[in-house]
């Protein structure tokens, strides 16, 4: 198998380059991450993030053959004889496949990803009906791997102003949470030229989400919530 990997080390003064390796997966190598671990055993200078190795932590998001995904959830048998691995597009590269996710998390924090409810909490917990809880399905599962936002051209052009699909998915999660009291303020916060409405419904986000979520549908739900409020 031929693996072409983006290599960049800020300390060696060389420009970024693609390094091509020939490596045969062993029988126990089932996912792309297994193969990367094998490469790293041979060349410890190769840098990439990984942690849970089962699609929960979102650390090993990278661009695999032009499409963002998680290395730990990409079966080797789904790849061709030649694989091209690059860091997530649109974010500054720190080293090899590791990107600086500050811009991504700044947008995530900007939507206030926590419940806002100033009423006195009940003795045990704020309860929801099964129907209210069901509205959070397809949203709470997001692992913040950034595959969606970094595949979104609108986020590439305006990472400092456009919240991006991951942040907007989370915004929708709190806007539609029955326990949250800040719906109006949350909608106000998104109603400008950039934060929500830079979304051009390209839908790369939904196409690449490794958890099968649909940020574009949630973005539409926010627009409709704004519309309902306005008319």
């Amino acid at each position: 198998m031929e693996v072409s990997i983006y290599r960049y080390d800020p300390d060696d003064g060389r420009p970024p380059r693609m390094q091509t390796l020939r490596i045969e997966p062993a029988r126990e190598d089932r996912m792309l991450l297994d193969l990367l671990q094998r490469v790293k055993r041979e060349d410890p200078s190769l840098s990439f993030r990984r942690s849970c190795r089962e699609g929960v932590c979102g650390s090993d998001a990278m661009n695999i053959d032009g499409r963002n995904g998680l290395a730990c959830m990409t079966p080797l048998r789904s790849l061709g004889a030649r694989v091209v691995l690059r860091p997530l597009p649109g974010l500054p590269v720190i080293r090899d496949l590791i990107v600086d996710m500050t811009a991504f998390f700044r947008q995530y924090h900007s939507i206030r990803p926590w419940l806002v409810n100033d009423t006195r909490p009940p003795e045990r917990e704020r309860l929801q009906s099964p129907a209210e809880r069901e509205r959070l399905d397809g949203v709470y599962e997001c692992i913040l791997c950034a595959c969606c936002s970094t595949q979104c051209p609108s986020f590439w052009w305006n990472p400092d102003k456009f919240v991006g699909p991951a942040g907007l998915l989370q915004a929708s999660r709190f806007i539609h949470d029955s326990r949250d009291d800040a719906t109006e303020a949350r909608l106000d916060d998104l109603d400008d030229a950039y934060r929500l409405f830079r979304c051009r419904t390209i839908m790369n986000c939904t196409e690449v989400c490794p958890k099968g979520l649909a940020p574009s549908r949630e973005i539409e739900k926010i627009r409709l919530a704004m519309l309902r409020r306005a008319v």
Partner: peptide, 13 residues
Amino acid sequence: MKRALTGLRAWLL
């Protein structure tokens, strides 16, 4: 002026 023709209004228009 800020929301003259941006956000939801522009989208709806």
